[in-house]
């Protein structure tokens, strides 16, 4: 399984990891090339375990993983070329942001250190708060200072596990811009997330992980197209359900309409984006007040389930 044409920087072959009888990662083979690769999957899909195995932090039960053609376990020099930001908050509350980034630089033998620290803090736009204790930071700020610590040695490979947890919309945009800049510089970036839209905005290539298995991989647009063909159930509550049902069924985006016992409408649509736009207009045209519009199967698990089942059909 590959993405793009350049030489793969990260290669995994038959990679598995199990904890007792639980299989966290199951026989994954992949190549990751320079650019941004999104590692997408619901919670518990095995994303963090996969990232930790690629980083050399976790043992593999079977298979092998290499970065730049080198084994990742027991290979300390490789850490100079890799930046890893794990899911958990790995900061020291008693340090200031600057001290933390400096420590990370010292531990990775960065030289000249002060210049690298300033550049990393500048990259995450945290100069003003850099001399405050980390324990006073908001969650989003802690994520940013961790990212600065990950970037301080200017790594060629970045492994970022749920890096946008706790980030506000403004920070998300900055972060996306930063990663795109790094990708343009030729770095290899792996970003894990359980939020589809988040990965869509950042990554060109996606690896979809479900129950420890690679369910799909490749260009995001192709995967998105497959998702768009998926039928969605949408529950609508309003003050005139019969009138709305009669009107909605005329829409091209709607395949079927039925009423539930509580008098609400359940719409089956294969084009939920169009439905989102058309439904409010329709309600307005018929002077109907919508009190509730709920997607019934829009969880990421159901999306992945659809993709996996679709692949088996």
């Amino acid at each position: 399984m590959s993405s793009g044409t350049s030489t793969p920087v990260i290669h995994a072959e038959g990679l598995s990891r199990w904890f007792g009888s639980i299989v966290a990662v199951n026989d994954i083979t992949l190549d990751i090339r320079p650019g941004i690769t999104g590692l997408l999957g619901p919670n518990g899909a095995g994303k963090s375990t996969l990232i930790r195995m690629i980083a050399g932090l976790a043992r593999v039960s079977s298979g092998e993983v290499t970065v730049f053609g080198e084994p990742v376990r027991n290979n300390p020099p490789l850490s100079k070329r890799m930046g890893v930001m794990l899911e958990h908050e790995t900061v020291y509350g008693f340090m200031t942001g600057r001290q933390f980034v400096k420590l990370m630089g010292e531990l990775r033998q960065v030289s000249p250190l002060d210049q690298a620290v300033e550049r990393a803090i500048g990259n995450v736009e945290l100069r003003e708060a850099a001399d405050r204790k980390i324990r006073t930071y908001s969650r989003g700020m802690r994520q940013r200072i961790r990212l600065a610590g990950t970037l301080v040695h200017d790594p060629e490979v970045l492994l970022l596990d749920e890096p946008l947890n706790g980030a506000d919309p403004k920070q998300r945009i900055r972060f996306q811009r930063l990663l795109k800049r790094f990708a343009a510089e030729g770095r290899t970036i792996v970003v894990s997330s359980h939020i589809l839209e988040e990965v869509e905005r950042i990554a060109d290539t996606v690896l979809l992980l479900v129950n420890g298995k690679l369910a799909a991989s490749g260009d995001f647009r192709a995967i998105r197209a497959a998702l768009n063909e998926r039928p969605y159930h949408v529950l609508v509550a309003c003050d005139s359900p019969r009138t709305l049902a009669a009107a909605v069924v005329q829409l091209d985006s709607v395949e079927a309409v039925k009423m539930d016992p509580a008098g609400r409408i359940v719409i089956l649509s294969r084009n939920v984006r169009d439905l989102q736009i058309e439904l409010p207009k329709l309600a307005q045209r018929h002077s109907i007040t919508l009190s509730r519009v709920v997607p019934l199967d829009d969880s990421l698990e159901s999306v992945f389930g659809y993709l996996v089942d679709g692949g088996e059909r």
Binding site: M82, L86, T90, L107, R108, Q109
Partner: peptide, 15 residues
């Protein structure tokens, strides 16, 4: 316990 061990093991130093 606080999962900061990765900070010191992801370094070029021999163990």
């Amino acid at each position: 316990s606080d999962r900061t061990l990765a900070n010191v093991t992801l370094t070029p130093y021999p163990r």
